[in-house]
Amino acid sequence: MGDAAFWILAVGAVVTGIGVFQMDSMARATFLLLASFLCGAGELLLLGLGYLGMVIVLMMTMEMVVMAVFMVMYMMNPAGLMPMTMVHNQRPATVIAVVTFAGLVAGILLTPWPERKGARPMDSTMQVGEAIMGPQMLLMIVIGVAILATMIASVVLATDRGRYDRYGDRLERRRPDDPIPGGRR
């Protein structure tokens, strides 16, 4: 049962992953990528990682819906009305990908992996929770700071004209310097 589920999900993850780059619609590609992530999350659920599997399912579903919005914003070939090639450099990339895969598989099969050490916990969620709130808390702190930094950096990058452009470096202008007057004054 576990084996069958593993292979179905594995083939599903890889086939939908390949499909992402075969589609000429970027919206369809987004949802194929979501399918690939869901198959990957299913593999983690098979391993008894209930919490992480569900986090990935929920997060990726939201993330791909957000991604679909950006896809519509930056879409090549919108609604199939402007057929164009979306790829470049295809042959070298194929060779690189195949060589990478072959190298990784060779490494996987030749490496003498260690035997399992220790027993599986009764509750894997409890284990990860206790780790990030105890001995591994530094990891959680770093993740938190990284998320905060990303939030600030992405807003700074995506902002067109912020308040320093409008009111000067010291925010001392009484009236904003806008190319076209408008907005709040």
């Binding site: 780059f21 979306m86 990908a97 195949v98 895969f101 990784l104 996987i108």
Partner: peptide, 23 residues
């Protein structure tokens, strides 16, 4: 691990071939 390597290689192919930054 072979599944992981396959996903990695497919992603690498995509990252190298696609023109659109989003892709």
């Amino acid at each position: 691990l072979i599944l992981a390597a396959a996903l990695f290689a497919v992603g690498l192919y995509g990252a190298l071939t696609q023109q659109s930054i989003v892709m």
